[in-house]
Design a protein around this nucleic acid. Structure first.
Length: 325
DNA sequence: TTAGGGTTAG
């Protein structure tokens, strides 16, 4: 602190070096240090302000970040692409729709030319802030050449808004437009399929990954499809899928499967997978809770007591939450 | 010697 406040080796730190420090500290979550350097600076440039703003935003300090917004705007620093993207990205993260929109409007008024990266940041911001139609019209206005990230962003937006059909159809549109998907492309629509009950679409997408694009599904993709199948009551198929996985299923996949078993009130299968999960980690609270809830739903109070006993035996503290019915 | 887009949902 002393070295920083009096300058390094008695020299005043340059704006560039101080800014690098603000950025470094903020990125590591050392916001007190970042603020300290920021406050001490006599001169700050665009990058200094943005680094501080982004640092606060990424660390969830919405209110503090918000206070920097006006000075940034007053200085008119939101004029280049990098600045725009940094600011808009943080606005998306914080749900600052009005602020994000004001940057967008400001730049339109000033005749700013948006590239695909700028557009993607805006699409993501509008989608995350609940304005899926604004995101959609930006995406569809044909002023930019779309790429895999802008497509993924739009697809994620649809998924976020429960528009499973749109998420899936934009995957096909992307292929039609000759853009190669990547692993991320498939995650959002698969999630959307589980939310919207689009079982066949989910299965199709999953298989297209490998067959059409040579993309081996990762554990997350398996987990999503297990969820799609589990929610649709196709527990046996979900189980077969897990067995076919080219790697050992982690707790995450098994927990997804377990919640499918609970949803379908398949206690027999639920016990099997819970047993496996507890062999992986006897302290996995979630497993006890789900098992206990399954038994409670089946009014098997003796078993509920038994689970409680198991928890005590293993020193698992959390009391299972009973579902009300 | 400083700032750039997507990556489940909860």
């Amino acid at each position: 602190m002393l070295a920083l406040s009096e300058g390094f080796l008695g020299l005043e730190l340059s704006v560039t070096l101080s800014t690098a420090l603000v950025d470094f500290f903020a990125k590591w979550g050392a916001l007190e240090l970042a603020s300290f350097v920021f406050d001490k600076m006599k001169d700050r440039n665009v990058i200094t302000w943005i680094a501080m703003f982004v640092g606060l935003a990424q660390n969830g300090l919405a209110e503090d970040a918000s206070k920097l917004f006006s000075p940034i705007q007053e200085k008119g620093v939101a004029v280049n692409s990098t600045t725009l993207v940094s600011l808009v990205h943080s606005c998306a993260h914080l749900g600052f729709l009005r602020k994000g929109k004001s940057i967008h409007v400001y730049l339109i008024r000033h005749g700013f030319i948006f590239d695909v990266v700028d557009m993607t940041a805006l699409i993501d911001m509008y989608a995350k802030c609940g304005k899926i139609q604004s995101a959609e019209s930006l995406f569809n206005n044909n002023s930019i050449t779309k790429d895999v990230i802008s497509f993924n962003s739009m697809i994620t937006g649809y998924a976020l808004h429960g528009q499973g059909n749109q998420a899936v159809s934009n995957y096909f549109r992307m292929i039609k437009e000759g853009i190669m998907p990547n692993h991320s492309t498939f995650l959002s629509p698969l999630t959307a399929c589980s939310h919207s009950g689009l079982v066949e679409d989910g299965i199709t997408l999953f298989h297209r990954m490998k067959e059409d694009h040579k993309l081996g599904p990762t554990e997350k993709h398996y987990s999503r499809l297990v969820d799609v199948l589990g929610k649709a009551g196709r527990v046996e198929e979900a189980r077969a899928l897990i067995r076919k996985m080219p790697f050992e299923p982690s707790s995450a996949v098994l927990e997804t499967f377990l919640s499918g078993c609970r949803l379908q009130k398949n206690i027999t299968m639920g016990i099997k997978v819970a047993d496996r999960l507890l062999h992986l980690d006897a302290m996995n609270t979630a497993v006890y809770v789900v098992l206990s809830n399954m038994y409670a739903e089946a009014r098997r109070w003796d078993k509920v007591d038994y689970i409680r006993g198991l928890m005590r035996k293993h020193g698992v503290k959390k009391t299972p939450a009973y579902s009300s019915f």
